[in-house]
Design a binder for these strands. Sequence first.
DNA 1: ACATTAAGTGATT
DNA 2: AATCACTTAATGT
Length: 210
Amino acid sequence: MKLNDIVTASFSKLFEENLLQEICNNGILKYAEPDKIILEIRRDIQFIPLIVSGIVKVMRRDGDGNGIFLHYLSKNQTSAIAISYVLEGEKSEIRLKAQSNITYIAVPSKVVNSWFLKYQSWRSFYFKLNQQQTSLLIHNINDIAFTSLEYRLLKYLEYTSQVSNDSTIYSKHFDIARDLKVSREAVSRILKKLEKEDIVTLGRNKITLN
DNA sequence: ACATTAAGTGATT
DNA sequence: AATCACTTAATGT
């Protein structure tokens, strides 16, 4: 599909006509495979990715695996955090990583910046994203601080399942453990318990919510 | 068949 | 709930 068609199909209800035109003129249509890093911590944010299809993981994690999973981005979204850093000319403090095969429109940061002055529909879009994603972060922090790992793990599985529209989550216990910043054994044990309670069905590299 | 990687589990802290 | 020290199961070559 051509960029123009994709922009019309995905964003015509969200953005005003001139903005759609600008996305077509400045955006570059890109594809990425699972695990491809779209934006890296401590790097300049050259472009903002508007997600057309697939799921993107927003995380705080460095090369040593120190960090944590923050939230997902899906169709017709982008990272409010990345945009706010662009606005302040800061380097990225988050990593964006493809969770599935993804299609996105890469818009140069400079261009995105100028949209705030020109387009009400862009400002609305950003504020809405910001509210949604801030809410996800706050709930995440709350769960980390005040709830059990079992609760966090179940919520993680449900969230992943919901976002990917699949009752089966294709992940290793090890990777889930890294996302939740706990040990792999702890994840394996809780999953085993949930399987005994008939809440999940386990397989190698996959977990199905019953 | 053998090696490697993922997952399961008891013991200890 | 982390860490260690395995064991067992599933897959890749």
